[in-house]
Amino acid sequence: MQFTDAEGKVEVWSGSIQPHDVWLIKGGFRFEVCFNRYYQPIRKGGVVLVKFVADIAKKSELCPIGVVNWRNVNKQVQADIVELIRGKFIILDGEIYNDAMLKHVGKHRRQWKFELKARYFNPTVRTRQQIENDQSWRNCSRYLARISEILKYADNGREARAMLSHLHTNGSTSFANSRDEFEMEHGREPGGYEFFDRTHKTKDGVYPENTNTQELIDMAKSKIDASVATSSSSKPRIEVEDEVFNKLMYDKDNSNQKPVGYGFVVKRSDVWECMLYYGKKALLPK
């Protein structure tokens, strides 16, 4: 992985890079990070950045945990986090990149709150020793005191998880890196159908049990083959695949909205390409 010093000299760091390496590096060195066109960090630099961001989210002096919603965190605090990250990584200028980094901070902040809750929180027993021994817990306890709000978020999350009918098989590899790997292998972007198929089956080519993925793929294949056989146009197969697949995945009345959990939805000619994460029909407003 490449990193650059304050004078612009480029060097290569081989081997594992952990958050403590990023904290300790001196002399104006910054690690280089690539982003895809969806402003997602990719490749090794992206992995290092995301790990470092996760570490920031666990430091209460940098990332306050007592605020319920990440969007309500003081803007100056968020700006300081962006400045800290940019001081360690070479990232293109622009608010859209700042927003992308803060989105990752918010995500890992939620995960850290969940870990603290699982580790410490007992609604009937909260000892003074627990509260006094851990600064993170003291901050988190202010959040946990709003138990009615917590239960509301928990119920929403439980309901959303119950709606999942497809489970991705990407493991620790991000969807952004999977997309990047596909582009390097094939010299083009994946279509929504083939990307879903790639990220929802195992290395053995099978789909997870207790899901509807096999049924969905079989139905899509049947409709795609029928559409190609009867089509009189010279439309590329990948566009036919996306048209058929998106009709299966979208509700007819909500085809112009972005579905929750489907990743990024982008306009490619007159075809909506969906980078699908899960198979649920919950929708966000425009």
Rank of each mutant, 00 (worst) to 15 (best):
I150N: 14
Y207I: 03
V125G: 08
G171P: 02
T199F: 02
F121C: 05
Y207R: 09
K117T: 04
E115Y: 10
N122K: 06
G205K: 05
K152S: 07
F175P: 01
R158V: 11
S172K: 09
P190W: 02
T127L: 07
N156T: 12
D155V: 10
F195G: 04
V125C: 12
K152P: 00
D180I: 02
V206K: 08
Q214F: 07
R138L: 12
R126L: 13
G187E: 11
V206R: 08
I150Q: 15
Q129H: 02
I131H: 14
D180C: 03
K117Y: 11
G192R: 03
F195V: 01
H186Y: 15
L151A: 12
S136H: 11
F121D: 08
P190F: 02
R179K: 02
L144G: 01
I150H: 14
S172T: 04
K113Y: 09
K203T: 06
E209G: 04
K201R: 14
G157R: 06
E159H: 04
Y153M: 12
S178L: 11
E149F: 12
A118I: 05
R119F: 08
F196D: 01
S136M: 13
L164A: 08
A145V: 05
Q129F: 04
S172W: 14
R126F: 11
S136C: 15
S172N: 12
F195T: 03
A118E: 15
Y193L: 06
R138I: 04
L167V: 01
T173S: 09
S141F: 15
N122D: 13
E149G: 04
M163S: 14
D134P: 03
L151K: 13
T124W: 06
L167N: 01
T202R: 00
K203A: 14
